[in-house]
Nucleic acid binder design. Structure first.
Length: 507
RNA sequence: GGUCUGGUGGCCGAGUGGCUAGGCUCAGCUCUGCAAAAGCUGCUACAGCGGUUCGAAUCCGCUCCAGACCUCCA
């Protein structure tokens, strides 16, 4: 991806980037701690099952953030973890972790489960053209660091051991820190609302959370520690890995809205408790949920589906299959901070809208200048379109607005292509650059029907067929001309009659 | 119960004080042998009730509705 100016320069447009910070609940101008470097951490998946579309949305959100920061010229270190230590299953709290349970049910090593679903996760990310992060650390690869962080927290007086488990002393921490600042929760309100969970009687206070849990014999994944043979608490890994790779204070932390509490709140407490760092994360970004009929997409609701089901349409919620790019575009048509409702009509609309966008982009490749003498409309102000495109992205990554701006460019391309609007070569190049930057680099859209470009033989055959049909048309032999068009349509080849002869595309 | 999000036209979905969002659908027109594509035009909006204001979808208050989260559960 090229930066707008020289390879090492930060774009002038970067100065106006504003991010909706969920910590302050305000849009704030983005100022990196150590420009041109930017550190970003995003909570990755727990790899105990296939990811579904709701998960994809979160990673897509941060893919666009990552892409835009790169585009602006920042040197981004993007860390996205893999949670490969299972934590407790569901509400039932049967004392078994998710990965361990899956391993037992399928008679696999826990690490086989981890590998299988990590591979699946990577496949899905590729399918949706989501860029890999700079570092993808795993929880199990950082047990030593986690134990070390727990020790620091204990030393600082914010952690205590009970029966081989270690808990975070929330009340102690809250004496000097604002626990609940991110989620807006008050510890007095939290007090009576905690669920009855394993080990609750070991805690000094029900609101304390686990840093280390002693494992019983049935627990498949366990490690030695100064306190017991056991496993780390869920919130700890992200604190440890973000600190290790990005430092005690870094620029952006992202994740799904559902992780705000307790996960991210606890992360902040752990970081502060261990390092005394006042401001571990400068900008918190939370992606909102994908809903189906107004309900959060989740496995337990049975309303989530896998990419395979999506493409084949083989799911009770899907009327037909949709391509990954259609889904990517559909998601980008909503802002990441709002819920997005999944429905067949909405996806079909996205499919058609994307097709229009991509067709114009394709047209642009062979667009020729149109003189102002022959055109009814004056040349477009591409510079202005580009300005609005940057303004949209700078306004908290407003991809729906960016897409609306791109449709202005689509209109220009179509008008020029039909000879209605004037444009010079420079204008065409500006438009090409616009699509390259915003559609390809930033939104990550790509043509899916590349095989339709055809080889030489196909092109030759089509040229012959079109020539025959053109002759039929010249002879006003409409029956033959229509027959050719209809039969080709049945084969998935669409003929469009333009001013300069017919063109063709594959479905 | 608490916390946090939201409630926008036929559908999806932007927009935080006055200026066209956009996409899809539908209707009409232009172009076209017809069709498709494209362009143009039109259509029905801002949950409700009060308030602030010259002016509110946009600010404030209340009500109603929906969703998410509430300690180890994306």
């Amino acid at each position: 991806m090229d930066a707008p100016h020289s390879p090492n320069a930060i774009s002038d447009f970067a100065a106006n980037l504003h991010i909706g910070n969920s910590l302050s609940r305000k849009k704030e101008r983005f100022e990196p701690l150590n420009a041109p470097y930017v550190g970003m951490y995003v909570c990755g998946p727990t790899v105990y099952s296939n990811v579904h579309l709701g998960n994809v949305r979160t990673f897509l959100t941060f893919d666009v953030v990552f892409r835009y920061l790169l585009h602006l010229g920042y040197k981004v270190r993007y860390v996205r973890n893999i949670t490969d230590v299972g934590h407790l299953t569901g509400d039932s709290d049967d004392g078994e972790d998710k990965i361990g349970k899956k391993a037992r049910l399928e008679n696999l090593e826990p690490m086989e489960v981890v590998q299988r679903y990590t591979n699946d996760f990577h496949d899905v990310m590729r399918m949706f053209n989501i860029l890999p992060p700079s570092i993808e650390p795993t929880a199990t690869g950082h047990i030593v660091e986690q134990i070390d962080m727990i020790s620091k927290i204990i030393e600082n007086g914010y952690g205590y051991e009970a029966n081989g488990s270690v808990y975070f002393d929330v009340r102690k921490f809250a004496e000097t820190h604002d626990y609940g600042a991110l989620s807006g929760r008050r510890i007095d309100e939290l007090q009576n609302q905690t669920r009855a969970l394993d080990g609750q009687d070991e805690k000094r206070d029900p609101i304390d959370f686990a840093l280390w849990k002693k494992a019983d014999d049935s627990h498949l994944m366990q490690w030695p520690s100064p306190w017991s043979v056991g496993f780390p608490g869920w919130h700890l890994e992200c604190s440890v890995m973000s600190t290790k790779y990005l430092g005690q204070s870094f620029d952006i932390h992202g994740g799904g809205m559902d992780l705000k509490f307790p996960h991210h709140e606890c992360e902040i407490a752990q970081n502060m408790g261990a390092h005394g760092q006042a401001d571990p994360v400068r900008y918190w970004i939370h992606g909102n949920m994908l809903t189906v009929n107004g309900r959060k997409m989740s496995k337990s609701e049975g309303n989530g589906f896998t990419p395979d089901e999506l493409i084949t349409g083989n799911h009770k919620l899907l009327e037909k299959g949709y391509s990954p790019m259609t889904v990517r575009f559909f998601m980008l048509q909503g802002h990441y901070a709002g819920t997005l409702d999944f429905s067949n009509p909405a996806l079909q609309a996205a499919e058609k809208g994307l097709e229009r966008l991509m067709s114009a982009w394709r047209l642009l490749e062979d667009l020729k200048p149109v003189s102002s003498d022959s055109a009814q409309e004056a040349a477009p102000d591409v510079e202005d379109i580009q300005k609005r495109a940057y303004a949209a992205m700078n306004d908290d990554f407003n991809t729906p607005m960016l897409i609306a701006v791109l449709y202005d460019a689509v209109k220009v391309v179509n008008s020029v292509a039909s000879g209605r609007m004037a444009i010079d070569m420079e204008g065409i190049q500006s438009l090409q650059s616009l699509f390259e930057r915003f559609a390809k680099d930033i939104l990550g859209l790509q043509h899916e029907d590349t095989q339709a470009a055809g080889d030489d033989r196909t092109d030759g055959l089509m040229a012959v067929i079109c020539a025959l049909r053109a002759e039929a048309k010249t002879n006003k032999d409409w029956a033959t001309a229509d027959l050719i068009r209809d039969r080709l349509a049945e084969l998935g080849v669409n003929i469009k009659d333009g001013k300069d002869g017919a063109s063709w595309t594959f479905d």
